[in-house]
Amino acid sequence: MAKRIDVSGLNAYYGSFLAIEDISMTVEPRSVTAFIGPSGCGKSTFLRTLNRMHEVTPGGRVEGKVMLDDENLYGTGIDPVAVRREVGMVFQRPNPFPTMSVYDNVAAGLRLNGSYKKSQLDDVVEKSLKGANLWNEVKDRLNKPGSGLSGGQQQRLCIARAIAVEPKVLLMDEPCSALDPISTLAIEDLIGELKERFTIVIVTHNMQQAARVSDRTAFFNLAAVGQPGKLIEIDDTERIFSNPSVQATEDYISGRFG
């Protein structure tokens, strides 16, 4: 079910500004890949190119190839809407739909896509909420508004919403940066469980978090403000944090700059 992502020669622009340049990497299925790097180096932009959300930003444009198993996401005739059903996303700030109940939030992906059987919906909602470790906390208030949950619960609700449509890949853009340590721990545990089923890519500013949850880590950097961000190196997390092959990575991880 999980799919491999193979990126080669990827450039992303905002209008005429080149935000990230010439990125090539492979993301293994059923693993967690973490992106680290200073602010503004293009981690989030790159993440958003992986499910064609980058082009939603006005002026957003992408060159290069992103292979999802054997299909190029930027090939001709590819429907971005179909891509986003395969590659789900969780955002930095919890963003449950304010008009919908907990149940409706989880069911939103299926309902809004119009491709579901009514009888299955209850099962999918329960399964997704269990998958996001939220079921026990909300099973008695499924019909209450989703925005009434705490921040950490809202973020897990968003994860449940994302996995309810059964994507092959789950992208997470700093999913814990707005949360307290306990909610963060809950989500990190959840990431550990989800990687059995999904390919997970996570952007984080927290290097301990990258070390804790990820199997592989990619370090991004930019030469100067206004320069495009680049992939410096990607390797097994253990190696990146103990013995990285590039000096800049070591400097960043040990806190000497950035």
Partner: peptide
């Protein structure tokens, strides 16, 4: 209507017109 809601819906693979109809309009109704 926060842009995050539109993005959340689009990222679920919901087409733009349905996002507007089912997420943006109800939120601002």
């Amino acid at each position: 209507v926060p842009n995050e809601l539109r993005e959340a819906s689009l990222a679920l693979g919901v087409p733009k017109w349905r996002t507007i109809l089912k997420v943006v309009l109800p939120t601002s109704l």
